[in-house]
Design a binder for these strands. Sequence first.
DNA 1: GGCGTTTTGAGGTACGCAACTCATTTTGAG
DNA 2: CTCAAAATGAGTTGCGTACCTCAAAACGCC
Lengths: 347, 347
Amino acid sequence: MADTLTASALTLKDIARQAGVSLATVDRVLHNRPGVRPDTVRRVREAIERNSFQPHVAAAELARGRARRFAFVMPSGPNPFMQQIQDYLGEMSAWLSARRLGVETVATDVFDPSVLAASLEGLSDDYDGIAVVALDHPGVRAAIDDLVDAGAKVVTLVSDVPSSRRHHYVGIDNIAAGRAAGALVGRLVGQQSGKVAIVAGSQGLRDHAERIFGFNQVMASEFPGLSVLPVLEGRDEDGRSEQVLARLLGRHADIVGLYNVGAGTQGVARALSDAGRDKQVVFVGHDVTALTRRLLLQGVMDAAISQNPGHEARAAVRVLLALARGEPILREQEKIRIDIVMRDNLP
Amino acid sequence: MADTLTASALTLKDIARQAGVSLATVDRVLHNRPGVRPDTVRRVREAIERNSFQPHVAAAELARGRARRFAFVMPSGPNPFMQQIQDYLGEMSAWLSARRLGVETVATDVFDPSVLAASLEGLSDDYDGIAVVALDHPGVRAAIDDLVDAGAKVVTLVSDVPSSRRHHYVGIDNIAAGRAAGALVGRLVGQQSGKVAIVAGSQGLRDHAERIFGFNQVMASEFPGLSVLPVLEGRDEDGRSEQVLARLLGRHADIVGLYNVGAGTQGVARALSDAGRDKQVVFVGHDVTALTRRLLLQGVMDAAISQNPGHEARAAVRVLLALARGEPILREQEKIRIDIVMRDNLP
DNA sequence: GGCGTTTTGAGGTACGCAACTCATTTTGAG
DNA sequence: CTCAAAATGAGTTGCGTACCTCAAAACGCC
């Protein structure tokens, strides 16, 4: 009837007694301090295993004395998505201070590898953990590895550097996101055949390139009736996005689908509306902002692929904290999902 | 450049000094203990406010001594979704025991109000918090209110009892979920007109009724070309669901959409396949399980409306813990989203 | 002003662990 | 067997809070 799940009340003292050693030795083993014979280490470890003992985090945290500090290295521009992440960090302030955690934001130009690498340098002196929106570049990778070597915990946020030795990546799989976008455009277009347009910020950006790759994959294999036009580059700016798309719409009367890979959504929507084709073209974009929310409600946009910025902010903090404490990470909890947002499940 | 967010290092002693009182008095105010003049209370509160002081949770938890215990009251049947919630609770065991939290599952017949009410009775003696998958019924409401009056923290899980005085609801808005399902069926069917079938467990279940309501709302207002057939009741059983749906498919050749509101998905899929119409009918159901995952990959199901069971399990625990500690709840974090899951964003 | 009551102060103990010191025991090499 | 090095034991202190006791002070009432 009632199935008990947990509640150990053991302490380090119990472990010491069971292993037949003193508290000091258990402490040495627990913190990988030198001066313990391998055989003794084994005995202690076994006692811990046998009882599936977990040190009381509250006691450990309290005894530690020193507060933990984390740095968030983020783009300095007015990117609304990044702004949302920072806003959600702000909402955590009570939670953070109740745990004596300090979180500081470092603004930098994440698109310039040397500037970014310079910003990262030396952060390990002041911080126990660093979350960074990283550009995938050898210089940045080296900077991240340096931080790791210096003992800091490093998490990449939103954009990954897989070749680095960062401890964790908090963000979505962009290829899968592109696939989801492709499937949505294809399915929502339905039986008709025609052309599909893609507007991206730049194909040089790793996340954009991956999304386009996934999108094309699905289009090619599953929607042979739809032909994808060459990618337009709008540099994530409204004006330029509107301009290039307007020209394309003028040249092709049979565009039935549109995928906006990055920002510049305002411009894309305007080009569609001005051409009077916002109701006929299936329009899928990214992220839930005040703007995309409005466009979804108006029916101009049909779906938005989204990653939850609040979740990313909190997951980054939790992962850094777990890493610093040596606790296991709840992978399932920290995984960022690809959300499909349509008018009726707007968060 | 660097924007600091938190890190108070104040202690109760500092607050006491600032308020010009002793530690004992601050303690009395903090825990609403009697014997403090209103004016003194105000002074202490002001000092706390002024410094935005937060008690150190680790110290508080440690000093408390007693471990906290939570009960999860859940259906005894083989419902896969509920099973997933329990599995995810199990995955938290290290996390729980590191915090000296005890979580126990109480299996009961949640569909019988008197049995459920009886199971709830007296739980407040043994547990600090209770999460319950509740049937919305006056007897259950009264039982919940009794628990609250006895000082326990109560959270409704998956299915709400809004009229009770439960402290929190962890679950989705089922009307919105039904609307999302309706929008998907309508959009994926596309231009064609035809009939749409609904299979539910029972219209007496609040969550099913709400989903159907939302579904019909969208169908009526936005997809006039589709006509919704009377709701079939499959009691969430495979056999019965298959049977009733097969009969309906036989009678109507022009069914283009299908909404499966509850469980019994296996039976629904079989009826569709046996009729050879699994590729023509747009099929939207609920929840991501091993089965629905397979059906999505095979293209039999087109989309699943899902609430993340892992998130629900963890959110329920976190909310109960925050309530018990008197900490604020991170609403944004604990809100359960309506996930639209298609083949390419399968988690 | 005296009385009883209410309010406040002072202090202690305990929680479980980290981090440290210093004395003692064990070990292995010569 | 001897001796230095390595391993271990025993113990202390402190983290910030909860919870408790007892005495002292302030208060309100007549």
